[in-house]
């Protein structure tokens, strides 16, 4: 672990986080951290508490105990607006798009561009959307349609565009490829590499061990609300990770 500390201040440090729902400890004294230009995978079974943990960072939940530090400063995150103020952007498993609105309305939702008169500037927002989508997904054409008319990949690219457009420093991706075909999954993988090069820190929640091995630098594994351990992905095998997920067995201890 000393190797980590030589990298300076972590971008995000979640210390000793606990949250309970009606007596059930969904997250039990868990600590994770994230450095700039790093992808940290969060692994675990359904209900292991990884989504709950990360929602404390994105502002959807508020932890019962524990502290969050952003760039070494103690951060107070009570709602999604606070998280956005820390340049934390989240791409949710459920995509969090308003199906009845078009791509640009979704991209700018909560942060609309307005004219000097204070009215929303649809033309300007659409122009910006066209620019960023041209970068992320050049085949995207359906700017006028509600996002309910888009394919899974197109919807995902709208969700990702939202995070990228607003200069996220910290990106949370909750199973970003769950609903996608192989080609679209590759697009998301390329994008993660690109964002990493730009110095973003990314928390990636995924069930797919292959994807985690390929994309992540470190992996934190959770089981029953507790942290099993955090490992350098280079130092472990897929079987080691599976052992952590299924048996809650730390490879060093096992060895």
């Amino acid at each position: 672990m000393t190797a980590m500390n030589e990298r300076g201040t972590p971008l995000v440090e979640m210390r000793d986080i606990s949250i309970a729902f009606g007596g059930i400890k969904a997250v039990d004294h868990v600590s994770v951290d994230l450095y700039p230009g790093e992808v940290v995978g969060l692994l675990g079974h359904n209900g292991a508490g990884k989504s709950t943990l990360i929602k404390c960072l994105s502002g959807a939940y508020h932890q019962d105990a524990g502290e969050i530090f952003i760039n070494g400063q103690k951060a107070t995150i009570n709602n999604p607006r606070d998280a956005r103020a820390y340049n934390i952007e989240t791409i949710y498993q459920t995509l969090a798009l308003a199906d009845n609105l078009d791509a640009s309305s979704n991209l700018f939702l909560g942060r609309e561009l307005v004219t000097p008169m204070g009215f929303v500037d649809d033309a300007h927002m659409e122009a910006e959307t066209r620019k960023i989508m041209h970068r992320l997904n050049p085949n995207f054409r359906k700017f006028k349609d509600p996002v309910s008319a888009l394919s899974g990949g197109q919807r995902q690219s709208v969700a990702i565009a939202r995070a990228v457009y607003f200069n996220a420093r910290i990106l949370i991706m909750d199973e970003p490829t769950a609903a996608l075909g192989p080609h679209e999954t590759q697009m998301v993988a390329d994008l993660i590499h690109e964002l990493k090069r730009q110095g973003l820190g990314i928390f990636l929640i995924d069930h797919d061990i292959h994807a985690v091995m390929e994309l992540c630098d470190r992996a934190s594994v959770m089981k029953n609300g507790q942290l099993v351990g955090t490992v350098n992905v280079k130092d472990v095998t897929e079987d080691d990770l599976l052992g952590m997920i299924i048996l809650g067995k730390h490879p060093e201890k096992a060895a």
Binding site: L97, N106, L109
Partner: peptide, 15 residues
């Protein structure tokens, strides 16, 4: 309209 379309999305967008 966003809240009507997807209340969770609206909430998560900081509305």
């Amino acid at each position: 309209f966003a809240t009507g379309g997807n209340p969770d999305a609206a909430e998560l967008s900081g509305i």
